[in-house]
C-alpha cells in the first residue's frame, strides 16, 4: 500500500506520459513537472529523459567509472547499496534482502534500465521503497545538511551504473 495522501513525483503519470517529461535541474526546466505534480521545489540532478523503461543517455554526459562505482555503492554515507541488496562486496558480511539480488544484474537489465532504477525508480513505481537517488523533489522534512540535495550526484550515479552494468555473477 502506498502511504495515503503522499505526494510522490510521477505518481499519477503512466509510463507513456512520463516518456515525454523532462526533469530539469533549473526551476525553469522543472516548471512543467512542478505544475503537473505540485511537488516542492528542490535541486535535481541533470536533465534526463525516460525512454521506454530506461534512461538512455548518461546523466550530465558523465562517463561512469566502474571502480569508483563500486566504492560509492559500498560507502555507507553514499550509496550504501548492500544495506538492501546482495552485491559482490565481500568485505560486508551481511547484505540486505529488501531489494533484488544484484550480483548478476547486467544479465537482466541494460545500462539504460539500471540508470532509471538508480536515478528515478519511483518515476516507474511510486510505491517502491527504493527512493530516487538523483532527485530531491517532493521530499519532506529533510534534515538540514541534506536539504535540497539529491542522494547521489550525477557522476556518482553514472559510476554506480557502470559498476552494476559490469556485474554478471562472476565477481566474488
Amino acid at each position: 500500500m502506498p502511504a495515503a495522501g503522499m505526494p510522490v513525483p510521477g505518481r499519477k503519470l503512466s509510463v507513456i506520459e512520463m516518456k515525454r517529461i523532462r526533469l530539469g535541474r533549473t526551476r525553469h526546466g522543472g516548471l512543467l513537472l512542478l505544475a503537473l505534480l505540485a511537488s516542492g521545489a528542490g535541486a535535481d540532478c541533470a536533465t534526463f529523459e525516460i525512454v521506454g523503461d530506461g534512461i538512455t543517455l548518461p546523466l550530465g554526459g558523465q562517463t561512469g567509472n566502474p571502480e569508483a562505482g563500486r566504492r560509492v555503492a559500498a560507502e555507507r554515507q553514499r550509496g550504501d547499496c548492500s544495506i538492501c541488496h546482495q552485491l559482490p562486496l565481500p568485505n560486508d558480511h551481511f547484505h540486505g534482502n529488501v531489494g533484488p539480488d544484484l550480483t548478476a544484474i547486467s544479465t537482466r537489465l541494460t545500462p539504460a534500465q539500471i540508470r532509471l532504477r538508480v536515478a528515478a525508480n519511483r518515476q516507474m513505481n511510486p510505491e517502491s521503497v527504493m527512493p530516487d537517488y538523483c532527485s530531491s523533489r517532493g521530499r519532506h522534512e529533510v534534515a538540514g545538511p541534506y536539504a535540497g540535495e539529491p542522494i547521489l550526484t550525477d557522476q556518482e550515479i553514472e559510476d554506480v551504473v557502470a559498476w552494476l552494468s559490469s556485474l554478471d555473477g562472476s565477481a566474488p
Binding site: 500500500m1 510522490v8 521530499r139 519532506h140 529533510v142 534534515a143 541534506y146 536539504a147
Partner: peptide, 14 residues
Amino acid sequence: ERRRGQLDLSCADC
C-alpha cells in the same frame, strides 16, 4: 504513512 527525509521513506515503508 508520510514519507520523509532525504531517503524519502515513511515509517510504514519499513
